[in-house]
């Protein structure tokens, strides 16, 4: 964390809790840089998160009101807070398991209702904190603690899901694209209504080692190699490729 962002972090915090090579620390910095760029007052912001590694991005780290809630329910908590006090600028940060598996219903309904929230989904395609089980985002065939012979089910395309649910702004970038990701988060924060940013984040501890990508650096290289900006996508990319860019509200 650079010195410039220190003020965005609670003074008591000395380090992040994330594993070496985890993308969430980088995402944390990217989110705070986006807020810093916008020059927003953290006292007007509320960060809501659920359970899982990504739930710890704002709580307890961010020096603002933070609501660390139940597994899957962050968006529903955020909905109540935002509706009662519309002056709060509310961001929900969570993982793919939290927001899109157990919490999938709240995600699509908040998008449908166009509640003025910005949701950042740190997608590492696995349940990290609970020990590497398959999520609704785990790619077909990938190994996890609960899919030892390979995941037999297709993952969600979260951006298509949110587009269908009516989100005002939908984008996907990997944490390996920090500039695009930061600009995307800024856009999501400033657009009124429900906005969604999927931040693809490597999990070397749980995803990598189960799928024979042993080194954190290799995870990052693999992620970079699989990202295709949508402008360059041909439409013939295999299911293992990650199309990045802005899909709604660009």
């Amino acid at each position: 964390m650079t010195r410039a962002l220190r003020g965005y972090i609670r003074p008591e915090i000395e380090h992040t809790p994330f594993c070496p090579g985890c993308g969430h620390g980088s995402l944390m910095g990217t989110i705070l840089r986006a807020i810093d760029d916008l020059n927003w007052d953290m006292d007007e912001m509320l960060f809501v998160s659920g359970i899982g590694c990504a739930g710890w991005i704002p709580s307890p780290h961010f020096n603002a009101d933070t609501l660390h809630t139940l597994h899957g329910r962050a968006i529903a908590f955020a909905t109540g807070a935002k509706l009662f006090n519309p002056a709060l600028k509310v961001m929900v940060i969570g993982g793919d398991g939290d927001l899109t598996s157990i919490g999938g219903n709240h995600l699509i309904h908040a998008a449908r209702r166009d509640i003025d929230l910005t949701v950042v989904c740190a997608n590492n395609m696995i349940y990290g904190m609970t020990g590497g089980q398959a999520a609704s985002t785990t790619p077909l065939g990938c190994t996890s603690a609960t899919t030892p012979a390979g995941n037999p089910y297709r993952p969600f395309d979260l951006c298509k899901l949110l587009e269908g649910a009516g989100a005002r702004y939908v984008a996907r970038f990997a944490v390996t694209q920090p500039v695009e990701l930061r600009e995307s988060i800024k856009k999501a924060l400033t657009i009124e209504g429900f906005t969604f940013v999927e931040a693809v984040s490597p999990c070397p501890t749980q995803f990598g080692r189960r799928n024979k990508i042993d080194q954190a650096a290799d995870m990052i290289r693999t992620l970079q190699a699989h990202c295709v900006p949508r402008e360059r996508a041909t439409g013939k990319e295999g299911p293992d490729m990650i199309i990045t860019g802005e899909f709604v509200g660009a």
């Binding site: 809630t69 529903a76 807070a81 009662f84």
Partner: peptide, 12 residues
Amino acid sequence: ASIASVIGASWA
């Protein structure tokens, strides 16, 4: 979601 929204509003 109902009880979650209620608690969110309570904290607001």
